[in-house]
Amino acid sequence: MTVRVDGVDYEFSSLEEAVRFALKMAKSKGAEVQLHNGTFHVE
């Protein structure tokens, strides 16, 4: 599972870890999280 934040990809071994990271980053940026074909994008 890959989480992309500001064009940088972060790899996670589990969906749970990836979701937690994506939500944490989105909250800190006041951004939204989108899921596309198994890849999260924080914008």
Rank of each mutant, 00 (worst) to 15 (best):
S13H: 10
S13E: 10
L35H: 05
K27R: 11
F12N: 00
R4A: 03
V33W: 03
G38S: 04
E17M: 05
S28V: 14
E17K: 04
A18I: 03
A26G: 04
A22W: 05
H41P: 13
A31Q: 06
K29I: 13
M25I: 10
V42C: 15
Q34C: 15
A26S: 06
V5G: 00
T39P: 09
V8N: 04
D6R: 03
A26D: 02
G7A: 02
F12L: 01
H41T: 07
A26K: 04
V42F: 06
A22T: 01
S14G: 03
K24V: 10
E16H: 06
A18V: 03
T2Q: 04
L15Q: 06
G30Y: 07
S28P: 02
Q34I: 14
A31H: 10
F21W: 06
V8C: 15
D9H: 05
E11D: 07
E43P: 07
S13I: 07
E32K: 13
G30K: 08
L35G: 06
A26Q: 05
T2H: 11
G7W: 03
N37I: 10
E11H: 14
Q34H: 15
L15W: 13
M25D: 01
K24I: 12
L23G: 07
H36C: 15
H41C: 15
R20F: 06
K24A: 13
A22H: 01
G30W: 08
F21A: 02
A26C: 11
S13W: 07
A31P: 03
L35Q: 05
E16W: 12
G7R: 02
T2V: 11
K24S: 10
F21G: 01
M1A: 11
R4I: 07
E43M: 13
L15V: 11
R20N: 10
L15N: 04
E17T: 02
A31M: 14
T2K: 11
V33P: 03
T39A: 14
E11W: 14
V8P: 00
G30R: 06
F40R: 11
T2R: 11
F21R: 01
G38W: 07
V42W: 08
M1H: 13
V42A: 06
V5Y: 06
D6P: 00
S14C: 14
F40S: 10
K29S: 11
S28Y: 11
D9L: 12
V19S: 03
T2C: 15
T39D: 12
G38E: 07
F40A: 12
K24Y: 13
L23W: 08
V33E: 03
G30I: 05
L23R: 11
N37M: 05
E43D: 11
K27Q: 12
E11R: 14
S14Y: 02
V19I: 13
M25Q: 05
S28R: 11
F12R: 00
E17D: 10
G38H: 08
K27F: 10
Y10N: 01
G7P: 00
G30N: 09
K24T: 11
K27G: 09
T2G: 02
N37F: 08
K29V: 10
